[in-house]
Each structure stands twice: as C-alpha cells, then as structure tokens.
C-alpha cells in the first residue's frame, strides 16, 4: 500500500464524540463533551492540570469506559465494543505518541517502529519495510544504533513513526513535547502537525503548551468538563 502524502479528505470523520460524560466519585470530569475530527485535520486540546484531558484521551483509546455518550473512531462506536474486538479496532485505527516516547532503548529505531507493526499482526518483511520508509521520511538515522543513543528529538520522531506504522485513521498525542527543550519542541511539533496533511489521518494533540496548540487547525479548551472552541482560524506557525 502506498504510504504518505495523501491529500486531506476533510469530509471523512475519523473521530466523533457525542455527549461524553464521565465522573470519578463526586467529581465530574467530562460533562456532555462533543468532538469531531475529520481526516487530515488537527485538533489541540488544552486545559489546566486535572481538567480531564487525560481522561478524554483514555476514553478515546477505549481504556476508560465513560458513564454516558458515544465515541466513534473510523465509523465504529468504541463504547459498544469489548475485549478483542476493541483491541483489534484500536490497533488498526489509532496511533499514539506519548510524552516520554515509551521506546525500548536497546532496540534500533527501525526495530522500535517495526515492533508496533509486528504486534498488530503485520508480517516481518512488511513491518520492517514500513519502518524504514517512515524513518526515512521523518529523517531519523536508522542504522544499527540503539534508540538509547538518539537525541530527544530523534527519539520523539521515532515515536511518531511508530504511531504511524499501522496506518492509523486517528493519531493521538499526549503532551508529545513535554519532555523536550524549546528548539527540539518546535521541530517535533512541526513534524507532528504536518502528519494530517501528509498521511491523511486525524490528529488530536493533548497539551498544556499553548505554542504547540497554536499549530493545530482548531484549538479546544477543556473547562468545567466541557470543550470550548478557542479560535476558528487555523493556528499555523513557522
């Protein structure tokens, strides 16, 4: 399958959240949250600590079962899925970039990326081919050097490549630049926000960094359990 540089198809919804409600004890974290993300679109979710950003991410990943509401990823409702079906759907349609990369330091970058594909049931040849191509495109050196020897930025690029290797419809990023210095942060953020345009997937970035959030097509703020749109203009910075 040809990868990369798909034109955005903004009429195709990859994530549709309706009336999402979730509380822990007496504390209501999400109260009727709605969110739509189209293919090729990027959305940043900001908010203070404890506002429920991570819970929203957990719900979208299907790791947290909401009290009410529906979550459709790539056209299928996650809240109706259980066990293996949910895992298979998540594995095929969602990629995640974590704050600390969560890469295995002993593996080469190519192996780290291929590992995600292997775990998703892709054949070895195909997994390594995709990993090589992605790393080339994201300009990560990928010889036999262990990932531990890469710079912070290179590691985060590898993490992006790993999140993309299973060709997800939806890419989630949880504070992807939280552990990086300013220069590296900009470079990784530029790369991340170029992904929807290049690969045609939807992107949701959860961050508290407003300069990063400003790069998204839309920025939403989570306040009092509800998502509030901050600006209508796409925030693209060079």
């Amino acid at each position: 399958m040809e990868r990369g540089h798909h034109g955005p198809s903004r009429d195709v919804s990859v994530l549709s959240v309706r009336g999402l409600t979730h509380s822990i004890g007496d504390r209501v974290l999400l109260q009727g949250v709605g969110l739509d993300v189209a293919a090729g679109e990027s959305v940043a979710v900001t908010g203070p600590s404890g506002s429920g950003k991570s819970t929203l991410l957990g719900c979208v990943l299907g790791l947290v079962r909401p009290d009410a509401g529906g979550i459709e990823v790539a056209g299928a409702d996650l809240t109706r899925m259980r066990g293996r079906t949910l895992e298979r759907h998540r594995s095929r349609n969602i990629g995640v970039v974590f704050q600390f990369g969560e890469l295995l330091p002993e593996l080469t970058p190519a192996e780290n990326v291929a590992l995600a594909a292997l775990l998703a049931g892709v054949g070895a040849d195909e997994a390594y081919r995709r990993a090589g191509e992605l790393l080339d495109e994201l300009r990560v050196p990928h010889g036999q050097t262990p990932t531990a020897h890469l710079s912070g930025g290179e590691r985060q690029r590898t993490a992006v490549a790993r999140a993309l290797v299973n060709e997800p419809k939806l890419l989630l990023a949880d504070e992807p630049t939280g552990a990086l210095d300013e220069r590296t942060r900009d470079s990784v953020a530029d790369l991340l926000f170029s992904v929807p345009g290049r690969w045609g997937c939807g992107l949701v970035v959860v961050t508290h960094d407003l300069t990063v959030a400003a790069r998204a097509d839309r920025r939403l703020d989570l306040r009092g359990g509800r998502l509030v749109t901050v600006g209508d203009e796409p925030g693209v910075t060079g």
């Binding site: 969560e102 330091p105 995600a116 775990l119 998703a120």
Partner: peptide
Amino acid sequence: SVAPLSVLTGR
C-alpha cells in the same frame, strides 16, 4: 516499556 504497545495492540 513494552506495556504501552501491548495495551494498544491488545497483544
């Protein structure tokens, strides 16, 4: 360190 991948892929 494998846990995130394992959980996300269900393997």
